[in-house]
Design a protein around this nucleic acid. Structure first.
Lengths: 195, 195, 195, 195
DNA sequence: TATGAATGAGACTTCATTCAT
DNA sequence: CATGAATGAAGTCTCATTCAT
């Protein structure tokens, strides 16, 4: 049961993103996703354990791609400062490129129950680790404060970016999101205060 | 209908916070809240339009108190730097003082549907305005960067604090939250970078 | 309890007719009737045993007036033929004069449950007796067929008039109802067939 | 959704007639009908939009059969007089043959709300048209009055028969209904008056 | 593999009625 | 007589999941 590969598996994931973005989480019945994917209701259960599993898998797949992609791009960059900027930019660009996904991750996915929230947090760890690696490198290089609490720092960084994206989605993406990368980056690096 | 005052109104709000924190939003039946509040099921509907309205009203009331309280305390402080620290501390302290409320606002409230999310955002504006007033004052005083984009800055600040609180709740509040105010404050003020 | 007289008693009856005509039976809550009557919800129960009792009493009062009135008018008329015409005309005129009442008796009152339907039938007996008295007189006078089954005849007469009124109400009373008295009268007296 | 065919569709209709006749409309819970039909509660909603739709569909189906059947039988008869008698007899016989249906159509169906009443009237049109065709033919043949208002006439006919049936149902069908066809027929044809 | 008809648990909300004031 | 806040029972419908084909 629940095999994690195959053409239909991908079809269902993409259908779920579209249906949830269009109809909202609570109005995205399994039958609706099945119809969009062009399969029978029962077929969903050959690829996913249950409805929640679609959500988890969706997030897992998209997040996996994003982290993988980000890692590769970041490895090509040596400057710590630019790495952080690149990370922020890629984060923002991803959602500009796929607005349906933005709606799903920033708004709809959060309507899921607590158990799912914990699973989602697990998946997010990969991304937080990526942030952490930049922080570690920066501290090592003396570019960041030696006494930096990396656990707190990555929460601050993620929280800031995430809030910026959520705001953009809730404001119907009517302004340019990617251009916010620079001021956010500057704020995180140098803080609010003048020297 | 839906009177927004009275002893029973408060009873129901408090009962809702407790019941939702304990059972989760989707497992907090109206009858359960009514029983905890010591009123009949129907009485709920004399004070609230529907179940969602309990959630909204709960947030409205608690947030209103918090913002009001914060405003007063902040007005007693003149240093911009200390104002920001105070804000962060009060934010964290509020949830340490009422862990049930922390669970409800950080986890359960976010499971609500999109319409509700927008209503919640409206209510949050009062808090974001409070942050903004500190930012404005700081820029005015030359303490913050002159070219600071306040709209982005308040999202960064709120996102950072919010994420720190959510993490603490999801980690079962097993570490001291309030002590994180200082490092978060420092990070926001001075940034990650050494000078 | 439940005294059947007084100014408020009448106020409530009239309010009920208006509210039910405007909102429909199933959307005419006791509280709505009370508001329209300008009394408190509880006051209703000082004059009526329960909600059904309002309906029964309403019909009883209106029907009583109508039958009483009809009797008097009919006693002034000696011709059997004209008596029947007068009866039909008065029946139709009553509803033209009070369209709210027409809606209530022809449409809304019938939505009541079976027990109420039997009570209503009891009240209708007074009217059917009136028809019967005309029939008896007509048979006696040799004006109507000697072997006329009066029980059936009065059902036919009542059914015919009632259907004509109901139709008029359902067609939003957009044609002249009273003018139908003559053809209906002719049909009942002479039948469909040419001689 | 709401398939209007299939074995289960018929099962549910028949179960509904029985349950509603026995318990009354307002005490005929969907679960009760489902149990009688031998299906799950949810299955009802695969065949009917909602509870009201069961009532409408029930009437639609039964009325459709009746009108269809009546048309065929009437076409075999040439005499206008006998056609009208046949129509009345068939109307009465139908309810004698299915007393549950009589209860449902004469008492329970009328408890439905106004919107439903209009839908029911739509369905009744087929029957009224049948009456009308007999009237038209009779006028054409010079058997009925040339100046007959057919619209009124069919209301009178339907109203008369309907009232006779309702009375019979309310009197617990303790007399022979079909034998009333002849006197009703005579009354409608020749009127009350002696020549 | 794929289908899709069938299942059945579960909860929000309304509103007639009461009764302490 | 009058009030109106409080009560609490009760039922429709949805939708994730199954399983015979």
């Amino acid at each position: 049961m629940a095999k994690k590969r195959g053409q239909k598996y991908d079809q269902i994931i993409e259908a779920a993103v579209k249906v949830i973005a269009e109809n909202g989480y609570h109005n995205s019945q399994v039958s609706k996703i099945a119809r969009e994917a062009g399969v029978a209701d029962g077929t969903i259960y050959l690829y996913f354990k249950n409805k929640e599993d679609i959500l988890i898998s969706l997030f897992e797949k998209k997040m996996g791609h994003f982290v993988q992609n980000s890692k590769e791009r970041l490895s090509e960059e040596t400057s710590i400062e630019k790495k952080l900027l690149l990370l922020i930019e890629m984060h923002l660009k991803q959602f500009v490129a796929d607005y349906d996904l933005a709606i799903v991750t920033q708004l709809e996915l959060r309507q899921s129950n607590i158990v799912l929230r914990y699973r989602i947090n697990e998946i997010l760890k990969g991304y937080l680790d990526l942030i952490d690696s930049i922080l570690a490198e920066g501290v090592e290089a003396g570019y960041f404060h030696q006494d930096l609490d990396r656990r707190i720092a990555r929460q601050v960084i993620f929280g800031a970016i995430d809030e910026v994206v959520t705001n953009w989605v809730m404001k119907d993406h009517k302004y340019d999101l990617v251009s916010l990368a620079v001021p956010v980056h500057k704020m995180l690096l140098n803080g609010l205060k003048t020297n």
